[in-house]
């Protein structure tokens, strides 16, 4: 049975005895990969959404732990954890889905692209339009440093963005520098509109 591929919670290893809910009763959904307790640890980002940037969760302890395991411990299986939420948030978006890219060297180091994997697991088609030109990351910088970073993206050579509506996808939104840079490159390239979707919204301001 392919549907029940994961038998234990990917985060805490408790046996999965997934609770049924209305969603799963009416429609065919992604099988669950984490248990209810772990799921409840994540904090939904229900308020303070703006049109431009939509985020799903707040950055809390559980999320910090998740990101650490996923991105830095290279546990690629964890890309399944939020696939359902990502799928239902992006499936009806009409914009072109563009993930924030990684620098090739960084990709070699991590072995996978974390944003691409999230989208792949959620079965959301995407295209790469951008290239990263620096290897430095936003993590570990202060707010000031981030705000003053010089441009970190450029458009890929052969792509055409003129008149297109684009939705950028990233894992986390903190000060918005990454998104802003990417947006600027795309707008300058002639994109009609650029919006963003991130899995997490960090409480940098809180």
């Amino acid at each position: 049975m392919n549907r029940n591929e994961v038998k234990n919670c990917l985060l805490c290893n408790a046996p999965l005895n997934s609770q049924m809910d209305w969603k799963r009763l009416f429609f065919n959904r992604f099988p669950k990969v984490i248990c209810q307790e772990c799921e409840n640890q994540f904090e939904w980002c229900l308020h303070e959404q703006d049109e431009e940037v939509v985020s799903l969760y707040y950055y809390n302890e559980a999320m910090q732990d998740y990101l650490h395991r996923y991105k830095f411990m290279h546990d690629v299986l964890l890309s399944k954890v939020f696939r359902e939420e990502i799928y239902y948030n992006l499936k009806n978006r009409k914009e072109m889905i563009v993930p924030i890219p990684m620098h090739p060297e960084k990709l070699k180091e991590r072995t996978f692209s974390h944003v691409d994997e999230l989208l792949k697991e959620a079965r959301i088609p995407y295209v790469h339009l951008l290239e990263k030109i620096t290897t430095e990351t936003q993590g570990g910088k202060t707010r000031e440093e981030r705000m003053n970073t010089p441009q970190i993206f450029k458009l890929k050579k052969t792509v055409q963005v003129e008149g297109k509506e684009i939705l950028l996808v990233d894992d986390i939104y903190t000060t918005g520098t990454t998104i802003r840079h990417a947006k600027r490159v795309l707008i300058e390239g002639g994109a009609k509109s650029v919006k963003a979707f991130t899995l997490i919204k960090s409480g940098f301001y809180k």
Partner: peptide, 8 residues
């Protein structure tokens, strides 16, 4: 069927 929502 609502327990997931109720738990949250």
């Amino acid at each position: 069927y609502s327990s997931r929502f109720l738990h949250s």
